[in-house]
Design a protein around this nucleic acid. Structure first.
Lengths: 218, 218
DNA sequence: TGGCCCAGAATATGATCAAATTCCTCCATG
DNA sequence: CATGGAGGAATTTGATCATATTCTGGGCCA
């Protein structure tokens, strides 16, 4: 039937592969804010055809990860203070909702999985591994959102993450892995106690801390 | 080859025209929930080429207006109770923020424009004009969001509207234009008084009333 | 009922056309 | 004589199309 979930990723459509490849580049900082993104450049880099790359770009633009300038040019958005403020407002409004839902629904095995990711995250911080931190941090929140079982809210929040991914990468490149937001311990204990209120608060603190970091680097 | 042979040739690229056409169909109920959407059907309907239609569909899918089934099929999403609950949560979390911002920024001319739209909306309700109501209601909220000058929040909220557009059309077709949400008067007076708190409350009431209507029709 | 085959639709490719930026040249002016 | 700007050609990039290929779904037959 479905031949998805193939290890290695080969076997799913080319435009889907191109999309995930590009999205990971945006999320984990392979692309810098303000950098122009050309179709033909991506075609050469990824080896994919032109049409799949185009469709991947359209999807990313629709999600806000990239922006189409009027003159058929595509760039990675540069965030100004107003944009960071908006993103902070949106994240503060939405992500605590997901945390609260997760607190109601999380089972022991999901919490253990989250704890394992958080441990890997701490290890990445300890060894100053910025890409590792970004990746594990994203995995933590992504996994938490999956627990919340709210696909619409999750997709909206994923779109927000795509918007500040490049800038977060820049910040981490500047300040290293020190002073990074990590309210995950509070979050995990709140989840274990099924305390939606505390989970919500911890998430809000984590979000505000992270966005303040970006805001301070402008 | 020939591009001027088509009547009504606007200056916009074909994929942009196809996108707006399709988006309006979703927003104003030309497509029913659950209805399959085929590329070649759109090609025949709109007269556009295949590639622009494909890109428009990708954008709409990325925004949540349409959903890609795993099997290369695309349909208009059918909302269940959980989806409506999520959409309600998201709208209640975000749209009052926009209303509050608008209350701080609205000038007399913007308020007059909103009042004019609301008058046209009342007229549409009075004459039982469902498409007119949908159009004016969307124009009202869209204009209000423009006043708030928050492009990121606005684009997120626009995505939410795309998700419940088809279902709202179904509801209005069932119950007519009676009992439709219209807290716009409260909203307008709050805006005129620059009362962000009251604007926020009025928006929350409008959102909850509208979503309750959809929720009740399941 | 279960497997095979076929029609039809979606995906992917490359070619071709159009637009925009860039860079170069040339002329006017200080 | 040098410099700066306007204009135009060339290159780079994006948009569209026609077509080949692949995959899904349903009908047919054993």
């Amino acid at each position: 039937m479905n031949k998805e979930a193939e290890p290695g990723g080969t076997g799913l459509p080319a435009h889907e592969r191109a999309y995930r490849d590009l999205r990971d580049r945006v999320l984990f900082g392979a692309l810098a804010p303000g950098q122009p993104v050309t179709i033909q450049g991506l075609v050469e880099d990824t080896g994919a055809g032109m049409t799949p790359v185009r469709e991947a770009l359209r999807r990313l633009c629709a999600e806000g990860a990239l922006q189409m300038l009027g003159n058929r040019r595509i760039t990675v958005p540069e965030l100004d203070a107003a944009a960071v403020a908006e993103l902070t407002e949106a994240r503060v409004a939405l992500e605590p909702l997901l945390a609260a839902r997760a607190a109601h629904l999380a089972g022991p095995e999901e919490i253990d999985a989250l704890r394992a990711i958080d441990t890997a995250l701490d290890a990445a911080i300890a060894r100053g591994d910025v890409p590792g931190y970004l990746k594990q941090n994203h995995r933590f929140h992504s996994r938490l959102n999956a627990v919340a079982a709210a696909p619409i809210l999750t997709s909206v929040v994923d779109g927000l993450w795509l918007r500040f991914g490049p800038s977060l990468r820049v910040v981490c490149g500047q300040v290293g892995t020190r002073n990074l937001p990590d309210r995950h311990k509070d979050l995990l204990t709140a989840l274990a106690r099924r305390d939606a209120q505390a989970a919500s608060e911890a998430m809000r603190a984590d979000v505000e801390q992270g966005m303040a970091l970006i805001s301070a680097s402008l």
